[in-house]
Amino acid sequence: MALMPLPVSAWSGSIVAVGKFGAWFWIGGALLLVGCASRSYAPVFGPRPAAETAQRLPFLRDGITTRAECAARLGLAQAEFEEGRIWVYAFTATANGGARQRGSVDGALIGQPSDFTDTAHPYDLVLTFGADGRLTRHTLVEKPGRDAP
């Protein structure tokens, strides 16, 4: 099937004659835009893969990160369980693959550099600490539909 050439194409506010190269213009443009494909995914309730958690909150490392370091970076936890052994924070995804803390009682510290908030992906960050005060387990639990900040 022959591709129909377009007579003209608008580009940067000026009219450029495309002529018989119109079809190739559009094919080339489509190929260039392939790199701009969205990486977004449909929100699903439950824990996110460890790789994604590591990308969004890279400073969290089991066996290394201490309770004091978490408190310094994230502020007070929004909920504590089992006499402070388990901390929970509320986060929301950001457009560049980071995470933004929500509703912190001490001024909404941000876990990642400032970025556009992706309200479609709210999370709970759950941290468990051992007796030595070091992180033993951490999970980013996606909670689709939780109210936006």
Partner: peptide, 19 residues
């Protein structure tokens, strides 16, 4: 355990009788 539940479901809407 309670820890497993929190890591699986996140924070509950309500907590009664001290967890």
């Amino acid at each position: 355990t309670r820890e497993d539940v929190l890591h699986c479901l996140g924070r509950p809407e309500r907590v009664e009788e001290n967890g």
